[in-house]
Amino acid sequence: MLEELLKRRIIPVIVIEDAGDAEPLAEALLKGGIDIIEVTFRTAAAEEAIGRIAKAFPDMMLGAGTVLTSEQADRALGAGARFGFAPGLNPKVVKHFQDAGGLFMPGVMTPSEIEQGLELGCKVLKFFPAAQAGGPAMIKALAGPYASQGLKFSPTGGITLDNMMDYLSLPVVSAIGGSWLATKKQIADKDWATIADQAKAAFSRAAAG
């Protein structure tokens, strides 16, 4: 699972208000070349949306975001999520998700949090909120002491098509998370063509290096 995740360089961070939008949204991302999605547990529709994507697109790498509690972890995994993200580091939630067979990436901002994550066996850590916490320069500074540990970061927050390569050019960054790939308004408007175009533009930029 970790090896498969590390092959993906862009992870759409998605907020779904209506579970009925799940399948066409996933299809739009796939048309743009992106076969991974993180559905955040910020809405009541998240669990059903994950389940619908898991059923309709079983080959898509499907994860849950904003997993803050063990109860949410159980619901995410039960619906079909294979990995999880959180904005912060809660050892109880990390362990619970891992014990249930999922790959979990907690959020970090400091060396102490990085060391806690490594102690919990997390080889990929979410750097959040990336832009506000110092961006690529901060990631480079944090990565130095831990290079020998095989640590990777997946920064999220304030990342766009214009600045994504500033992050992806860093060897320590495995992937970036982006909400711009499918905004809440675009999803509400069912603007699947624009979402597919945005996914394609990001995929092409990442592939070009």
Score class of each variant (00 low, 15 high):
residue 8 R to G: 00
residue 140 K to D: 01
residue 56 A to L: 08
residue 116 Q to P: 00
residue 209 G to K: 12
residue 10 I to M: 06
residue 22 A to M: 10
residue 137 A to G: 06
residue 156 T to R: 04
residue 19 A to W: 08
residue 116 Q to V: 11
residue 139 I to L: 13
residue 122 C to T: 07
residue 173 V to Y: 13
residue 176 I to N: 00
residue 65 G to R: 00
residue 20 G to R: 07
residue 149 Q to S: 14
residue 55 K to W: 07
residue 167 Y to P: 00
residue 165 M to W: 09
residue 87 P to R: 14
residue 111 P to K: 10
residue 136 P to L: 12
residue 6 L to E: 03
residue 145 P to F: 14
residue 124 V to K: 02
residue 183 T to A: 07
residue 114 I to Y: 14
residue 160 T to E: 07
residue 189 D to H: 10
residue 32 G to D: 03
residue 3 E to T: 11
residue 167 Y to D: 01
residue 14 I to D: 02
residue 205 R to N: 02
residue 7 K to H: 09
residue 28 A to T: 04
residue 11 I to E: 01
residue 56 A to C: 02
residue 208 A to D: 05
residue 109 M to T: 14
residue 84 G to C: 12
residue 184 K to I: 03
residue 41 F to P: 02
residue 166 D to V: 02
residue 187 I to V: 12
residue 94 V to P: 09
residue 47 E to P: 00
residue 72 Q to F: 13
residue 18 D to L: 04
residue 209 G to N: 09
residue 111 P to I: 05
residue 15 V to L: 10
residue 79 A to Q: 06
residue 95 K to G: 02
residue 68 L to D: 03
residue 199 A to Y: 15
residue 106 P to M: 11
residue 111 P to A: 06
residue 51 G to V: 05
residue 168 L to E: 01
residue 90 N to I: 03
residue 75 R to Q: 14
residue 100 A to D: 00
residue 150 G to D: 08
residue 149 Q to G: 01
residue 70 S to V: 10
residue 202 A to V: 05
residue 185 K to M: 05
residue 97 F to M: 13
residue 2 L to P: 00
residue 44 A to I: 04
